[in-house]
């Protein structure tokens, strides 16, 4: 939920969400060009914008980048180690009775590209997540005519995620203060109780919510007014410029 806090407090929060979405998506699209150097440039660019423009501490950004690391490493390893045909020149080879397993130059390159591309994509998504509140993204999607049902679900899930978290925390504290988690046996028991009471409470809360919406004239569609943002031509110019520079970089250092 750390990211969520930054989304509301960062220095780019008043920038039009469509611009931020464009920046993230366009950069992701460019990032599909298979070029490790380009991908590295994307990570650096997103990091620079986040740290210097949005005011996100560099330490936080780096820490968040480390999170997908373990998944990516596993993906890389499976890609790097392959069954290789008999005659090929491998860097490392393990001969088994029926076939050879090893790492070739191509598989090294391949997994390196996978790694750098994953980091580039992740940093684009982090840019969006760190600078744009969920509700602003939903507003942009709304103007792009994404089905209302999906958007309402997104909004409600987002809002009630926090209510659910708060409620489960309260129940947990009240259980823990009565020694509900003193050993493994009581912990399992208490956790079960927590889940069931959370379900019952959510059910009742959803009924009260429905009543309170009805009292304000709810007729099946959650119509809310979204905040309006000014569109900055300057920002759009810089986004186009940045993508253009990335493309040039990819062309200059093409494989």
């Amino acid at each position: 939920m750390l990211i969520d806090n930054y989304a509301y407090l960062n220095k780019l929060k008043d920038v039009h969400p469509a611009e931020k979405l464009l920046f993230a998506l366009a950069t992701m699209a460019v990032g599909f060009i298979p070029n490790a150097l380009l991908n590295l440039a994307i990570v650096l660019m997103m990091g620079t914008v986040l740290v210097f423009k949005a005011g996100i501490p560099a330490r936080i950004f780096l820490k968040m980048l480390l999170i997908p690391f373990s998944f990516i490493i596993i993906g890389m390893l499976t890609m790097m180690v392959n069954v290789i045909p008999a005659g090929s020149n491998a860097l490392i080879k393990l001969s088994l009775p029926d076939f050879n397993v090893g790492i070739t130059l191509e598989s090294m390159k391949m997994s390196g590209l996978l790694f750098s591309r994953s980091m580039a994509m992740v940093s684009c998504l982090y840019f969006l997540a760190f600078t744009t509140p969920v509700m602003d993204i939903v507003a942009v999607l709304r103007s792009m005519k994404v089905p209302v049902l999906l958007l309402e679900l997104m909004e409600l899930i987002y809002r009630f995620l926090f209510v659910l978290m708060e409620t489960s925390e309260k129940i947990y504290i009240s259980q823990a203060s009565r020694l509900g988690y003193i050993n493994a046996k009581t912990s399992v028991h208490s956790l079960g109780r927590l889940a069931s009471s959370l379900l019952v409470k959510s059910w009742r809360d959803s009924e009260s919510l429905y009543i309170s919406l009805e009292a304000r004239g709810y007729d099946g569609e959650l119509r809310v007014l979204t905040r309006s943002f000014p569109i900055s031509q300057r920002n759009i110019f810089f986004i186009v410029l940045a993508e253009f520079l990335l493309l040039i970089l990819a062309w200059l250092f093409r494989g």
Partner: peptide
């Protein structure tokens, strides 16, 4: 208009602005 006892079951929108706009939008 009715103001309910528990604001957590009345407030549904992500931001205050959106929340308050719900009634007049309807």
């Amino acid at each position: 208009g009715v103001v309910f006892q528990d604001p957590d079951t009345q407030l549904f929108a992500g931001s205050v602005f959106q929340e308050v706009s719900f009634g007049p939008m309807n």
